[in-house]
Design a protein around this nucleic acid. Structure first.
Lengths: 203, 203
DNA sequence: TGCACGAAATAAACACCGTTCAATAAGGAT
DNA sequence: ATCCTTATTGAACGGTGTTTATTTCGTGCA
C-alpha cells in the first residue's frame, strides 16, 4: 500500500482536525479515536502521529479552534454601556455553549491531568477574555485598584461559567426553558448593583 | 480456579467501591478499570458484573457516595445568620472540591451522555442542596415568590460552582493562593447586597 | 532511460480497555 | 458419595492508543 498522497503535513493536520470536530459534534467525544479519525480522511491511524503528538494533543488543538470561535463570538458583541456589554458577553458565552455542547464540554472538561498543550496558549486566551471583562468593570469604577478589578472580573466570569456548566448538564432543575438566560441576567445585575453601591458607600 | 469466597454480594460491592475510590484518589480516573479494580480486591473482572451493570454504573455509585459526603459536609455548617450560612455553604463546597479533586471532578464531569443512574437520586440530592440555599434566601426576603427564590438560589449556587470549577482546574490565573475563597466571599456578598437592595427599592 | 535514494504511509504488533459467556470448582443437600 | 446450585473464572471479541519495521512511491541523478 502506501500510495503517496498529495497532502502536505499542514493539510493533513487540517483535515484531521476537521474530521475530529465533525465526529465530536455528531457522535460525541467517544467517537474521536485515532483509527476512526484517520479512516474518515482516508489515512491510517499511524499517520496521525506524524502531525499530533498523541490523541490528547489532537483534542487540545481542537480546543484551540473552539476557543478561537468562542472568543470571536464575544468580539462580535457591539460595545454599548459596560453593563450591557457584560450581559452580552455572558449571553454570547451561554449561547455558544448551548449551540456547541460537545465542543464546549471538551474545551472545559478535557483532562487537565497531564502535560500536553494547555498552559501556553490557553492561559493567554483566557487572560484575553478576563481582560475584556476587566475593561468593562473599570469603566464603571475607574478608581478601583487593578487587584480589585482582577478579582471582580474573575468572580463575575466564574459565575457566568457556572451557569453555563449547570445549564448544559441540565443540573438546574428548574421549570423554565430559558432559566439559564434569566439567571445570567439576575447574576450580573445583582452583582453589579452590589458592587457599585459598595463604592457610593465608601465615598 | 474459582475458589468460592466468603463475601456476600453486598460485601463485594462495598469492596469494589472502596478499591475504586482509592484508585481514583491516588491515580486518577484512568486508573479505574474493571480488571484493575477487580484485581485490587482479589477478584476477576467478570465478577464485578454481578454487582454493577457496567463500569459507568460503578462510577455513578461512587459518585453517590461522594455526593453524600459533600452534603454531610454542608450539613455540618452551623446555622448562623442566613448570610453567613450561604457563605459557609460556599466555603464548605470549595473546600471539599479542593480536598477531593478527583472525586469531585468525577461527580460533576462524568459523562451524562447515556442512560444510567444519574437522574433519579442525583436530581433529588441536588434539589436538597438547592432547598437549603432557598431556605437561607427566604429568611432574608420572606415575601418573595417561590419562583423568584428558586431562580436566585440556583443563580447564587451556579456562581459558587463556577468558582469551584475554575479554581480546581486552575483557570483563574490570579496571583493569590486563596483567590477562590476571596472570590466566593465577593460573589455572595455583592450578589446579596444587590438582591436585598432590590427589595427596599420596590418598597 | 533506468536506477537508487529518501520520504510517506501502512500493516502489524503490543498492551491495554469493557463486556460476555461457557466452563469449572466449591459448598451444601440428599 | 453423589448431585446440584451458584459463585467465579478464563478466554474470547472487538475496540482503544501508540510504536515500528516494511513497503511503496515520487523524485533527482547518472
Amino acid at each position: 500500500m502506501a500510495k503517496r498522497k498529495e497532502h502536505s503535513k499542514e493539510e493533513l493536520r487540517e483535515m484531521a482536525l476537521c474530521a475530529a470536530e465533525s465526529l465530536l459534534q455528531s457522535e460525541g467525544l467517544k467517537a474521536i479515536s485515532a483509527r476512526r479519525v484517520a479512516s474518515e480522511i482516508g489515512y491510517s491511524a499511524g499517520s496521525l502521529y506524524t502531525v499530533f503528538k498523541n490523541i490528547d494533543d489532537l483534542c487540545w488543538q481542537l480546543n484551540a479552534r473552539t476557543l478561537a470561535q468562542l472568543l470571536a463570538r464575544l468580539d462580535a458583541v457591539v460595545p454599548a454601556s459596560p453593563r450591557c456589554c457584560l450581559l452580552d458577553y455572558g449571553q454570547a458565552y451561554l449561547a455558544f455553549a448551548r449551540e456547541n455542547p460537545e465542543r464546549w464540554s471538551l474545551l472545559f472538561e478535557h483532562a487537565t491531568a497531564n502535560d500536553v498543550m494547555p498552559p501556553a496558549w490557553l492561559s493567554e486566551r483566557i487572560l484575553q477574555l478576563f481582560a475584556r471583562v476587566e475593561q468593562c468593570l473599570q469603566q464603571m469604577r475607574p478608581n478601583l485598584t487593578p487587584q480589585a478589578l482582577e478579582l471582580s472580573a474573575r468572580t463575575i466570569w466564574s459565575g457566568v461559567h457556572g451557569i453555563a456548566v449547570l445549564a448544559l448538564r441540565q443540573k438546574l432543575f428548574v421549570s423554565n426553558e430559558r432559566a439559564a438566560e434569566m439567571m445570567l441576567q439576575e447574576l450580573v445585575q445583582q452583582y453589579l448593583n452590589g458592587w457599585l453601591s459598595e463604592e457610593t458607600e465608601h465615598a
